[in-house]
Simulated assay, not measured.
Amino acid sequence: MSMSMISIIGSFVFLSSALFQQGEALSVDGPSILSRRAAVSAALSSAALASASLAPSAANAATEEKPKRSFRRYPSLRFISALGDPKSSSGSGSETWGLWRDDPGPRGVYLKDYDRRLEANNNVAPAGWSFDPTDWWVEEHGLIMSTPEPLPRKSVNKETKEIIPEKQYVVTGDREITTVLTVRDDGTWELEKGSLYDVTHLPCRSAAYRGDTCAPMNANLKDFPVKPGAEMPVINGCAKQDYAVLFVLGEVV
């Protein structure tokens, strides 16, 4: 999922405006958000922060009351691996989704280096993560990545400390839409705005390769890099599952 630069500034203009209008603002003056292979930082003016909102529009405010929400911005960009109908704004199956808390690309190992950097090291990557020969992940440039952890689908009420069987994330595809994704303990999910396609970052391609006969040396290196929006290549002996990649800016708290 490596890229030269993520134009994430627009997403933060959008998000930050919502936070100022809904209550607790996320600071945009702290550590810069990590992009794929590059750090993006910007000084956002108050005028810029007034340009967009996750809150209801002024036209709808008189007829639709929405509870105020607080958001917590993550110190670095996170990534969700998601499965679902790209045209849908809701569905089920989020129990199969994953989360990378750190950019898995720079911590990855190229397919061509599998034998000397993973196999020769008891399937432990230089970055410290373990490689499972029967279930492994690859991104669009041919980097074997760490397996994402299961996506958390529960939260805690900050006042009552009660466990809530759902969790809300601020997600974007780094295009036109930044919105709130709700995932629930029963596996259902929904977006407040747009479809799964709208919050998928198209240049980031990701797939899991699984099976007892599945091996990195079976990959055709000429299949990489993968074009934005295209499916990940088939690897002989592997069952493949493509995943959409969502950028996660923060969460509702």
Rank of each mutant, 00 (worst) to 15 (best):
T147G: 03
L191G: 04
E162L: 13
A207S: 11
V226D: 04
D102G: 08
E166K: 11
V183L: 03
P56L: 15
G229T: 04
V109M: 00
S27V: 08
K227I: 03
P152D: 11
N236T: 15
N121G: 07
K222Y: 11
P216Q: 00
A62H: 10
V124C: 00
P104M: 12
S94V: 03
D242F: 02
S130L: 03
S11H: 10
G105D: 05
L196K: 01
S4P: 07
V124Q: 04
K112M: 02
E159G: 06
K154Y: 01
T213Y: 11
G211I: 10
R210M: 15
K240G: 06
T134D: 05
R73Q: 10
N218Y: 05
S155N: 10
L181E: 03
T188G: 15
K154V: 11
S57T: 14
R72G: 07
W97H: 06
P104N: 09
R117W: 02
S16L: 14
W129K: 02
N218V: 05
V138Q: 02
F20W: 09
K158E: 10
A62Y: 07
V180K: 08
W100S: 02
P216C: 00
G211P: 06
D198E: 11
E149Q: 13
V28S: 06
L77T: 13
G250K: 04
I33W: 03
V180G: 06
S7F: 15
V156Q: 08
C238S: 08
F20L: 14
S53A: 09
L83D: 00
G142T: 05
R36T: 08
G98N: 03
A244M: 07
R210N: 10
S4E: 10
R205D: 06
A208H: 02
R175F: 12
A39K: 14
D174E: 12
S146N: 01
S16G: 14
E119Q: 00
D113C: 01
V13M: 12
K68G: 12
